[in-house]
Nucleic acid binder design. Structure first.
Lengths: 157, 157
DNA sequence: CTTATCATCTCGCTCAGCAAGATACTTGTT
DNA sequence: AACAAGTATCTTGCTGAGCGAGATGATAAG
């Protein structure tokens, strides 16, 4: 037990290459957050609105219809907040409400082309840069990055 | 010009292993954000307050004194918002104000031990998991992850 | 000693998000 | 068919984070 304690202490004192990467990942998360906030502000949006658009585009890419309620729970908003959010997005012309034909209580949210283009204009270059970087990687290096990110994703729960 | 357009279209249609990793990184950012939000809520904090604590601990690790003003600009808040933020953190006992002895206009912010422990209780396991994951990596794999993260950080500006 | 500049704080306001409840539609039961 | 219960969204009134403008206190320059 006291050996265990001493080992842990030593581990904290000596950073090592693993800790460097942990801090690097945190820095990436912070910096991407900042970049997203800048994008939001430049376009008169709240960060939550950007998060909503990203969630909507993700769903669209996966071929899923997304309703107001599902969007809200995805973002951790209650129903009132969700309604207000969709109102703002709709007023800004980023999104449109479509009443579901089968279950007319449901409202599915569709992203306007305009919003997709806007998002691409900001995140496109960033994505291009990432792809460019990764093109120089061989199979084992790609696998290493993939494994690390997948592991971090699971650890976040 | 139309050839260019067709090529671009083809590139979007065929994702490739690079795009998979880009989406994975985005997912990690989103999931870590969610995890941070959960931590904030469980402890009755606003996300901004958590961001502030992280910024303060970063500064402390780097051995820098951080003033109210510097913290505010780090977080993109104006002076009024910064004062309110520090008020809340101080009231919750996460932080204390210390008037600078040399320039008595300045107020440097110091993190209480309690807040450090709280942060460790949530992010500690996540960090441990990351270190554990990376222990299995050889030098080239570590370098690949490091290069990718560093590149993404630079691209975020 | 006066004026300019800087760091922080105070005041009044705006607006995102919450809690509670209303409205509209669907499904199951008798 | 009629009614009750459940589900999805919207409405209302409120709390509180953050902003703009300006006050206060401290330092620096003339």
């Amino acid at each position: 037990m006291s050996d265990q304690g001493r080992e842990e202490l030593a581990e904290r004192a000596e950073p090592g290459p693993e800790m460097e990467i942990v801090h690097l990942l945190r820095a990436v998360v912070v910096d991407l957050g900042r970049s997203t906030a800048r994008f939001a502000q430049r376009n008169g949006m709240h960060p939550t609105e950007v998060r909503a658009l990203i969630a909507l585009m993700d769903a669209a890419r996966a071929g899923e219809e997304i309703t107001a309620g599902r969007l809200g729970s995805e973002l951790g908003l209650n129903s009132a907040g969700t309604t207000a959010l969709v109102d703002r997005l709709e007023r800004a012309g980023h999104v449109r409400r479509v009443r579901d034909a089968r279950d007319r209580r449901k409202v599915s949210i569709e992203v306007e082309e305009r919003a997709v283009a806007l998002g691409r204009s900001h995140f496109g270059p960033l994505i291009d840069r990432a792809v460019e970087l990764l093109r120089g990687y061989d199979e084992r290096e790609l696998a290493a990055v993939r494994r690390f990110l997948t592991g971090m994703r699971q650890a976040a729960d």
